[in-house]
Design a protein around this nucleic acid. Structure first.
Ligand SMILES: [Mn+2]
Ligand SMILES: [Mn+2]
Ligand SMILES: [Mn+2]
Ligand SMILES: [Mn+2]
Lengths: 150, 150
DNA sequence: CGCAAAATGTAGCCTTGGCTTCAACATGGC
DNA sequence: GCCATGTTGAAGCCAAGGCTACATTTTGCG
């Protein structure tokens, strides 16, 4: 497992800085991820994703949701016409699928580790945004899934 | 725990809203947690915690660090006199110890699940802030520690 | 149809957490 | 002892993500 670049210096600043930078970046995208996940869910289950419903499910004001939706559109993840509900672009749908899968795996790992279901859902909502590809893969191996066929 | 309001409806908004609210709140305190953890570490290893070092270790500008330090002071977690380095209050020290313990447990769990060390450190930096008491306890049981004597 | 209620959108405010730029202070080397 | 350099602090800018208050549009219903 250790190549030859063993033992990064203990009080190493640059590595630590990189780790914190990664965490900050994940924190920044967490919000968008939750929105696309939720929008996909609403579209799938009810056929439409209205700002009010999104706001209620996230526990924020509708104005807050609308501003976030504007950002989703700006970033090419969603589109919508005034008063007509929100939809995901292809990119948004892909992201939603990814995020949803990650969410499920995180919850399952927590459950497998003996975390109570309510708590698992709670904590997963935050943890999911900080699970890298490598960690996700490890989680799936641990769960005994062969890289999820789904 | 469940009175008669069994089986929260699938598309339950209030429960989901609460989960997202919790995640948002954790996200908000994450930054302060990282600061106290780092300050404690610097104090322990070098005897002093200077803004410049803090900034470098976190990968932010020194101005950003100084403003965060001001907030730590405002919230009663740290104190400092001009040009004299930062120290933690009793409350700050307690928080630092808690945060550090959590960090270690999260890393250990990731390692136990087969996540590569570098990645474990990376992801733990974000995950740690979303691990509740209940989940922490489950993690410790999983690791076979009896509520960490240390 | 007509209109009240609900949904949507806009505006403006606040805090946080980034940044750069500049000013003030402290200190080590000469 | 003095001064160059490094550290610290202050100010001001910006975007994100909250909020409330108000304006506009849609819609459902009598
Ligand atoms: Mn989430
Ligand atoms: Mn989620
Ligand atoms: Mn952290
Ligand atoms: Mn940490």
């Amino acid at each position: 497992m250790a190549d030859d670049k063993v033992a990064a210096p203990a009080g190493d600043a640059t590595g630590e800085a990189a780790r914190h930078a990664t965490a900050r970046s994940a924190r920044a995208s967490a919000l968008l991820h939750d929105y696309v996940e939720l929008i996909a869910d609403l579209l799938e289950s009810t056929g439409e994703a209205r700002p009010t419903d999104i706001a209620r499910r996230l526990g924020v004001s509708h104005a807050t949701a609308i501003k976030a939706i504007a950002r989703l559109k700006r970033e090419g993840l969603a589109h919508s016409k005034p008063y007509r509900g929100v939809f995901l672009t292809a990119e948004g749908q892909a992201l939603a699928a990814e995020v949803k899968a990650r969410h499920r795996v995180v919850v399952d790992v927590l459950l497998a580790l003996g975390v109570p279901p309510e708590v698992a859902e709670m904590d997963a909502e935050g943890i999911e945004h900080h699970v890298s590809e490598a960690t996700l893969a490890a989680f799936e191996r641990f769960l005994g899934r062969a890289r999820t066929p789904d």
